[in-house]
């Protein structure tokens, strides 16, 4: 009896579907990736109980009214004029500190508007004063 000769074959892992799997994973990660693009306005709150003495002439009072109007040192200003006025103040006194006081029922967006305008005017020293009705 003649036995069939044993042919030794090297075992191999089929790799034909490798690219399919790679593409599947690729599509999955491409779809689920969320690139962080968080935007925001940064501010540092004052420490509790910390009182900083500042010269009264450096303080510029900004008041945000209930309906979104802005008053600068008591004078009503328009949104566009506010940027220019703030810039003008900073040219005269670069140590000016803007203190934003907001009406408690004013919308958050209104306060952000005023804050945004100050940032546009390159005012670095901005603080949030406790809200009061005026």
């Amino acid at each position: 009896m003649k036995l069939r000769e044993k042919v030794s074959r090297r075992p191999d892992i089929p790799t034909a579907s490798m690219a399919d799997i790679a593409f599947l994973l690729l599509v999955f990660f491409m779809v689920t990736t969320v690139f962080s693009n968080e935007m925001g306005l940064q501010i540092v709150l004052p420490e509790k109980g910390q009182e900083v003495k500042v010269k009264s002439e450096n303080i510029q009072k900004v008041y945000v009214e209930e309906m979104g109007g802005i008053r600068l040192n008591g004078e009503p200003v328009t949104q566009d004029a506010f940027v220019d006025e703030a810039k003008a103040i900073l040219v005269v006194n670069k140590d000016a500190i803007f203190s934003i006081k907001t009406h408690p029922r004013a919308k958050y967006q209104y306060m952000i508007n005023a804050f945004d305008k100050l940032r546009l005017a390159s005012a670095e020293r901005v603080s949030l004063a406790p809200s009061t009705e005026e």
Partner: peptide, 15 residues
């Protein structure tokens, strides 16, 4: 936040 001494704040906005 001030009470908890967490002072660095970022007010999230859209551009």
């Amino acid at each position: 936040f001030v009470e908890a001494s967490v002072l660095k704040i970022s007010l999230a906005t859209t551009k």
